[in-house]
Structure formats: structure tokens, C-alpha cells
Design a protein around this nucleic acid. Structure first.
Lengths: 333, 333
DNA sequence: TTGAAAGCGTTACCAG
DNA sequence: CTGGTAACGCTTTCAA
């Protein structure tokens, strides 16, 4: 019985194959600069397989001085289907470009403090959704070797590439639509649930923007994602005099629409309701839910941006406005 | 102007503080075994701050011979709210135990092949949801230093701790309930969408199990998550003679229920419908959706299992049956 | 209290 | 074609 080392290193492989560590490295990375005889190659591969050798990424990247790890913070709030899908597409695309995507589990630290934790892994690129990263954090990351820092969110951060998710446009779309169909007293749902402010604030602002200079007016409507909260809101609806509502997204819209209907209000006759995200569920509601369809950037495009930025770290930060918004009118408005 | 090195190392900090690298290490990790004078400590901290020094995790774990990284493959299919929530809870809990959770972006490789990629990172523990890991993969991971491999899925894998998600029980619950309310010709939705077989198969089997020895019979109903597919299924409903359906989960249930209603079928009079996952949306449907409530293991418990396994790598693999299932009867059955 | 040096697993540069 | 050897950044004995 062969003595199997606890966790085999390239030295173990070399010993078993009867060659030097360098040769092992050459064979396993099939370095083109050096020619190794076929029998030797076979012996090395055989030995590696027999020992179950797996190279040590840390040692490799320490030696190389860089890695191909793209780090993203894992979403701290359960991601919706829209964003999950986007994330997957992105991972696939980066994988095809030979990057390794790693989502760093949020350990409670926030913003620039978290950036330090990320920097310890020396990722070649960092992709930060949301708005939890300041210019300080970007500097920390770049100092520690990140060749690209890309933010995906409502604000531009100094030193980083920015994919501006223009949530104002979402609100603007909704507001303009509701105004166009003759509504004048427009409620805007603002989720009480933490972590959504970065999206709900701009959406509210966008509605206000769309209504500026008209005789319509927007009213902020705090709402938690519970039936009780929706019922409370619906109970006060008649006295509020609102004739329309932009419900933040389709899920909140479903929640609120149900509460309004239970209260005896007719949709859209008494209240027009519009959501956002264009989820399947909106098509299944009755009346069918009008919504703001959101176009996220394609994962492939974003992967290419990352790759470009990594190849040319000196380049000026790119700023793209992503997230196209367009109204899908169904029956609820 | 001070010359700032490209990416500062502890040597740079030492130089700036006028001490040795060892001293820097002592101070920054405040090693209790060695006492460093207060002025020196201050100088070191100052220097580190000024340079924006961030330790190099790879170098550290290379030297230490181990890390505190818990690796999970990132879900390849968009995770539902149930699972996302569980994941977040788990990350928090592991974070509190001072582990760093990292989700490894699926790069297309599957199963034991993927295990090799994970092993390169030398995680101290690996947590694999689903069923994409064989005994081979477990061996690879353990050989390369993983002190705990935990699978969370329908099957037990040799050598790994197992959290058995008993999806049969979900189906069993649903089947027993439908039988109890007098239904005899029971359809079971099996999503056509890839990646769900590992859940849908056992659920179907569970229904069959519940119906064994009765005069009721289960029929498999392939369904894609599109309105067209649901409409097709609904159009054939009357001739199928089915009087109940377990719709895989609440979302498929919503899709199918809508199609059935559009076809003029009454729920629950003509067809009883039950979903699973107990999502909010079920409560908002009319009739309110009956569902199978699923209790996932608490993130904290799972984190403790991981920690226990890491501390005692020799211990016998634990096998837990998690995922409690219970019927929540509402109006659709 | 501080410093010098060894070593973790890899790869790249030169000699053989 | 192959094999020493040095170096990546860090921690930790051991000596001063």
C-alpha cells in the first residue's frame, strides 16, 4: 500500500513520477515553451491522477502575482428572479472568458469596511451591485491589485466603472403612463423593508419628475410586505382620494391590488395599479397587471466590460446608463 | 510626496514604521504571546493605515496551512425566495462563527469535475446543495484539505455529512391531503424546466407513495413555466378526468390555476389545486391557495453542524432529515 | 521587546 | 529536454 500524503503537493507528484517539481509544473500546465517527452508526460499525469493532486490556487496566485477571480458581494436581501437571472447569465459569460466568479458572503460589515475584506482575496476585478461602496473602498481595492472595480447601481463612484441603473427612469415611466391615462392623484409605494431604499427612492423621485409641471401630484405610500400592512393602506384609500398607484414592483403590486380589491375598490376604474419588473405573475393576475418592463444589461456585455477593464486598467472609467424602462400596459391601468 | 508601492506588503509597512516584518505581524494580529511596546504598536498601525495595507489572504492561508473559507456552489438556477432566505441566514450564522462564506460561480463544469475546481481554493468546508456531487468529488475535496463536506439534497453521498431534504415527504403530504379531501384522480406537475428534476421526481414519488393501496391514482403532468404550456394543459383537462393537482410549487400552481380558471373550470369544485413553499403569493390568490409549507433547516443549526464537523473532521458523517413538510389548507382544496 | 530566518506550494529563470 | 533555485507575502519559531 502506497503512503498517501495528507494533501498531495506537486512535490509528491514529482517524487512518485520520478521527476523534478519543475517538470510536473510544465506538464500539468502544458507550458509550450518547454518540450517534455511523451513518456514523462504520461508518468506525471498518471502520478497526479493516482494521488488525486489538485493545484493550490493560493500558492499559484501568490507566485503569479495575480488571479482571475472576479468578486461580487452576495446579495444581502433575497434577490428577485430578475436579478438572479441576470447574475447567472453574468457568471456564465465571465466563466467563458476564463474568470472565476466568487460571491463573497456578506458578513455584516458594510461599505468600505467590507471592501477591505474583499481586498484580502486580491480579486482581479470587483463587481458591486447596490450602493454600498464609497470612493475609499474603491481606492482600497485598487491599491490591493484589483484591476477593475465596477459598480452596478444608482450612483457613480469615483474611480470605478459605473453601470448606472437608472431607477428614476422606471419611476418616470410609471408616472408618465399614469398621467397619460388621466390619473392625477398618484400614490407611490415605498417598501418599508430595509435594503430597498436605493431602488425605491429614485423610483419615487422619477415619478415626481414625470409629474412636474402638471396638475398631478405624487404621494409617498410606505408599505411593508405583509397582508396586514397592505390592508391598512387599503382601508385608508378612499379618504386619501388617490386614483392610481405605482406599487414599486409587481410583487408589491399584487399585494396591494389584492388588498384594494378586498376593500371593494375596482381596478382600474377606481384605482389604476402599475407594477415593475414584468414578472410572470403580473400576467396571471386579473385584471392583468400593467408593469414597467426593465431591461437589465446583458450578462455578456457586462462580462466584456469587465474583461476590457482588466486588460486596460489605466483606461478612463466607463459610465454606462443601463436598465431600459418601458411600460407594458395591460388591464390594471 | 511619499513613494507608494503598487500594492503594499507587510514589508512596506515594516519599512515605513522602522521595524521588522515580524513586529508588523505581531501588532496587526495582536498576538498575545508577544508584548510590543505601545509606541511601536502605534507606529505600525499608523504606517499600515497610511499605506492602505491589506493583508494577503492567499499568503496567509498558505503559511497557516488552512483557511476559514466555507465554499458553496452558486445556484445554477435562479433561487426562489425560500432558498434565498435560507442562504442568507446561513451566511450570517457562519459569519458569526468567523467563517467566510464564498459562493463559487458555476462555470459550466458539473459534479466531480466541479469539485476539483472548488478544491483548488482549499476551503475548510464545502456545502453542496442539490445532487451534483458524487463520492469521488467528496474524496477529492477531503484529500485537498476540506475538513467537512456537507450535502443538502435528496441523496446521501458517501463520506459526506448529509442534510437529507426529504422531498418525498412534500409530495406525500400533498397526496395524502388530496386523498383525504376526497380526490381520486390526481395530477402531479413535473416542471419541464431543467435543473428541477432533483426536486420534482421525489415529489412525484411521494404522491405515489401516499396513494399506494388506495383507489386513487397519480398522473404525471409535464409543464413548462409559460402561459402557453399551462393553457395547453388546461385545454386537455376535462378529457383527462383529473379532479385534483399537486402543482409542484406555488408559482406553478398560480400559473396552472389561472389557466384552469380561464378554461372555465372551478377551483376547488372541479379541480383541487395545491402548491408548495407557502409563498406570500398563495395567500393573495382567489381562491386562496392551499400549499405544503416547507421548513428548511435553520441557518444557525446548519452553521453549527459545519462548525462541529470542522472541529472534529474524523467524526462519523452525520445524517439529518431536514425539511419538515406540512399542509396549509386554504381554499383551493 | 525586537529581528533574522525558515517554510507554506507554485512557477520561472538559468544551468546542466 | 530536465533539474536546481529563487521568489511571491505571510507567520512563527528561535536567538539576540
Amino acid at each position: 500500500m502506497v503512503q498517501i500524503p495528507n494533501t498531495p503537493t506537486s512535490a509528491d507528484v514529482a517524487r512518485l513520477a520520478g521527476v523534478s517539481r519543475a517538470t510536473v509544473s510544465y506538464v500539468l500546465n502544458n507550458t509550450s515553451a518547454v518540450r517534455i517527452s511523451e513518456p514523462t508526460r504520461r508518468r506525471v499525469h498518471e502520478a497526479a491522477r493516482e494521488l488525486g493532486y489538485v493545484p493550490h490556487a493560493a500558492a499559484r496566485s501568490l507566485r503569479a502575482g495575480h488571479s482571475r477571480m472576479v468578486l461580487m458581494p452576495a446579495p444581502a436581501i433575497p434577490a428577485g428572479p430578475l436579478y438572479s437571472g441576470f447574475l447567472n447569465e453574468l457568471q456564465q459569460a465571465l466563466g467563458r472568458l476564463d474568470y472565476t466568479v466568487v460571491q463573497y458572503g456578506t458578513d455584516g460589515s458594510r461599505g468600505d469596511e467590507a471592501a477591505r475584506a474583499w481586498a484580502e482575496l486580491r480579486p482581479v476585478a470587483v463587481l458591486v451591485p447596490g450602493a454600498e461602496l464609497g470612493p475609499q473602498g474603491v481606492q482600497v481595492l485598487k491599491r490591493s491589485g484589483a484591476r477593475a472595480v465596477v459598480t452596478l447601481g444608482p450612483v457613480r463612484v469615483d474611480g470605478a466603472h459605473a453601470l448606472l441603473t437608472d431607477h428614476d427612469a422606471v419611476g418616470h415611466c410609471a408616472g408618465a403612463h399614469l398621467h397619460a391615462v388621466g390619473r392625477r392623484r398618484i400614490g407611490v409605494v415605498v417598501p418599508r423593508d430595509a435594503g430597498l431604499e436605493f431602488y425605491s427612492r429614485p423610483r419615487l423621485a422619477g415619478v415626481r419628475e414625470a409629474l412636474r409641471g402638471t396638475d398631478a401630484v405624487a404621494t409617498e405610500l410606505p408599505l411593508a410586505y405583509t397582508e396586514a400592512s397592505a390592508a391598512r393602506l387599503a382601508a385608508q384609500w378612499r379618504e386619501s382620494g388617490l386614483d392610481a398607484v405605482f406599487a414599486y414592483n409587481d410583487e408589491y403590486a399584487m399585494l396591494l391590488m389584492r388588498a384594494l380589491q378586498d376593500e371593494g375598490l375596482r381596478v382600474p376604474e377606481d384605482v389604476a395599479v402599475i407594477g415593475a419588473d414584468d414578472l410572470m405573475l403580473g400576467r396571471l393576475l386579473r385584471p392583468r397587471l400593467s408593469t414597467v418592463h426593465i431591461d437589465l444589461p446583458s450578462g455578456r456585455d457586462l462580462a466584456e466590460l469587465v474583461d476590457r477593464a482588466v486588460r486596460d486598467p489605466g483606461g478612463r472609467p466607463e459610465v454606462h446608463i443601463v436598465l431600459g424602462a418601458s411600460v407594458v400596459r395591460r388591464e390594471s391601468t
